[in-house]
Amino acid sequence: MHKPMFAHACWGARRGAIVLLTAALAAGLAGCAGTGERLSSMVTPYKVDVVQGNFISREQVQALQPGMGRQQVREILGTPLMVSLFHGDRWDYVFTLKRPGVEAQTRRLTVFFKDNVMDHVEGDEMPSEAEFVASLSSKQTSVKVPRLEATEAELARFPKAPPAAEPAATPAPQPATSYPPLESPRR
C-alpha cells in the first residue's frame, strides 16, 4: 500500500517539533546553574526499611527461666533465626533493622540448652518494648500528640441523652425437657 505524500510530511514535521522541543529543554536546563543539583535533590529514590530476624524485648528475656523446655522458650521468643547442626544445644536469635538515614540496629541473643532444658542466655542488652517503639519514631521530632480526654466543661456543651427506659422484664423461656433423637431410626 502506498501512503500519500502529505502523511510523510506530517510525520517529518512532528519529529522535527519533538527534536526541537527536546533541544530547547536541554539548553534551558544547561543554562541554569545548579539546576541538575536542585533537580536531583527533589527526586530521590524511595528506600525501604529492612527488618530481619526476631525482635526480642527485655521483657521476653526476663520471662526466661533456667530449666524451661525448648517449646516453652520457643513460645516466649519465637522460632530462632539460626539453629546450627553442629551445635544442637544452642539457638541464636539475631535482629537487624536498617532504615535510611538512621544507624542500623543489630542485636543478638543466644540461648544454650543442656539435656533439652534451657541452661543460660548470652547476648546484647535488649531494649524494652517501649524503648524499641520510641527508637522507630520518624525523623520528625516535634510531633504534637493531641489531648485525648474531654474536660467536664467540654462535655457540658453536649446535651445529655435521656435515660433509657428499662424494658419490661420478660420471663426467660424454660429449657426443653425432651429432645429429638440424635440419629434417625434405622430401617
Rank of each mutant, 00 (worst) to 15 (best):
E154A: 07
A161T: 08
R74F: 15
Q105L: 14
V43R: 08
R187E: 11
Y93K: 00
E154N: 04
T44I: 09
E149P: 05
L136E: 10
E122D: 10
L25S: 07
K47H: 14
L85G: 15
D115W: 12
V143F: 13
D92K: 09
V145P: 06
N54Q: 13
A7S: 15
S40M: 07
Q105Y: 08
A150E: 06
R108G: 01
A27G: 07
W11S: 11
D124M: 04
Y179N: 06
A7Y: 15
V51W: 05
P171H: 09
T44Y: 10
A27P: 00
I56Y: 05
E166K: 15
M126N: 01
E183K: 15
D124W: 00
C32S: 12
E75F: 10
Q60W: 00
E122P: 01
L39P: 05
P171G: 08
Q105M: 13
M82N: 14
A24R: 06
V48G: 09
E122A: 11
F86H: 14
N116E: 15
W11Y: 12
V111H: 01
P45V: 14
P185H: 02
G69S: 12
L77A: 03
Q52E: 05
L77D: 02
D92V: 10
P45T: 13
A168G: 06
P173M: 07
C10I: 15
P80Y: 01
M126L: 08
A13S: 09
Y179G: 01
E129M: 11
A23M: 13
P127D: 00
S138Y: 12
S84P: 04
V19G: 08
R70A: 00
R58M: 03
A104H: 05
A13T: 07
A23Y: 09
R147E: 06
M82C: 14
A13D: 02
S128M: 04
G16L: 08
G101V: 03
R147G: 02
A130F: 11
K98I: 10
A30K: 11
E125H: 02
A165V: 11
G67E: 00
P100E: 12
V111D: 00
H2D: 15
L39N: 03
R70N: 02
G53S: 03
V51Y: 05
V102G: 03
M1N: 14
A26L: 14
T177S: 10
A172C: 04
G28E: 08
E131H: 01
Q62T: 11
R70H: 01
I18T: 08
A63G: 04
V111S: 05
H8Y: 13
I76Q: 02
I76T: 07
V83N: 15
Q65C: 04
Q105E: 10
D89W: 09
A24Q: 07
A164W: 09
T110K: 04
R90P: 03
F6V: 14
M42W: 13
A24K: 06
V133D: 09
T35K: 08
S138H: 13
G16N: 06
K144S: 13
